[in-house]
């Protein structure tokens, strides 16, 4: 079903209000910029929230060094075009130890290169609030998360002891060792995000659009061979297939879907038609049921 402009306007107003609460109450907030479509929407909303003043937060990108090349290129373009303040953080200890998504094991790789990296980056820069583009419809444990979600010392999340969130009276107060995760897109759905991108003409990463790309089969899924680091086995046949990505992450862990959607309205037709949850294309989540809640309680975004 199409999403009406009234629904989008209402979602937009609410997200802007949340972003302004961040600017109004936190000491040093940061936008966690993941380069994906949700981050693009978040950035667009932040522009609107503070216009004509500039966005009062820096952007933080956790670079695992295994992102699609087109992601990094897109990130740098967006930063330059909008004159943004970008901080890139990589867990160098992980890089030195040779942690990688092929041989390390997905959970351990994610913990070191994403969860620990994020925790370190937040601590190093002393950010008290990290604003992310996660939505409640992405995954079941996300459905329970507050908009303003308190993390205890060490960035740990206790899902059973969340601060009550009442009306639109947001208690953003933090003790010295606590920090906040903020999710202005909590109430948005995947189709809302695409309809909004279309309506507002927001620039999104080319990886979302179908194009012949070099892939190999892994189980039932297509993984793109984005650079020479991809360890190909003898029986692996790299072939060109017309694929696109529904979510963006580390290229060896993000499966492409076969598609011919080359425009946003074609993507929308597909999103409304296919009805697969978007995280199904993330290898990391399917590893074990409920893995997202585990990761989140350790400090994953």
């Amino acid at each position: 079903m199409r999403v009406s402009p009234e629904i989008l306007r209402s979602l937009e107003n609410e997200s802007i209000e949340i972003l302004r609460e961040c600017a109004g109450t936190f000491r040093k907030p940061v936008i966690l910029y993941s380069i994906g479509k949700d981050s693009s929407v978040l950035l667009h909303l932040a522009k609107k929230a503070f216009f004509p003043a500039p966005i009062p937060f820096p952007l933080l990108h956790i670079d695992t060094t295994w992102k699609f090349r087109e992601m990094i290129q897109f990130r740098d373009e967006v930063v330059a075009e909008n004159d943004l303040d970008l901080i890139v953080h990589t867990n160098q200890r992980g890089v030195k130890a040779g942690v990688n998504p092929f041989t390390t094991g997905i959970s351990e790789y994610t913990r070191i290169m994403k969860t620990v990296a994020l925790r370190d980056a937040l601590d190093i820069h002393g950010f008290d609030a990290a604003i992310g583009g996660s939505r409640r419809d992405e995954e079941r444990s996300r459905a329970k998360e507050r908009i303003f979600s308190v993390r205890e010392s060490g960035h740990l999340w206790d899902p059973r002891n969340q601060r009550p969130e009442l009306w639109r009276t947001y208690n953003t107060k933090l003790l010295p060792d606590q920090s906040m995760r903020v999710f202005p897109l909590s109430d948005w759905t995947e189709s809302d995000v695409w309809f909004y991108i279309q309506q507002e003409g927001i620039k999104v990463n080319p990886l979302y659009f179908a194009k012949p790309r070099p892939v190999v089969a892994r189980g039932h899924q297509w993984i793109m061979v984005d650079d020479e680091r991809f360890p190909l086995a003898a029986q692996d046949a790299v072939e060109l297939r017309e694929i696109r990505f529904r979510t963006l992450g580390c290229y060896p862990l993000t499966a492409g879907v076969e598609s011919s959607a080359r425009t946003i309205s074609e993507i929308l037709d597909e999103v409304l038609e296919v009805r697969l949850s978007e995280r199904a294309t993330r290898l990391i989540d399917g590893e074990k049921e409920d893995s997202m809640e585990k990761k989140k309680s350790e400090g994953y975004f």
Binding site: A143, K144, Q162, T189
Partner: peptide, 8 residues
């Protein structure tokens, strides 16, 4: 169900 879960 232990906490509030939101669905659209």
């Amino acid at each position: 169900t232990i906490d509030v879960a939101y669905r659209s």
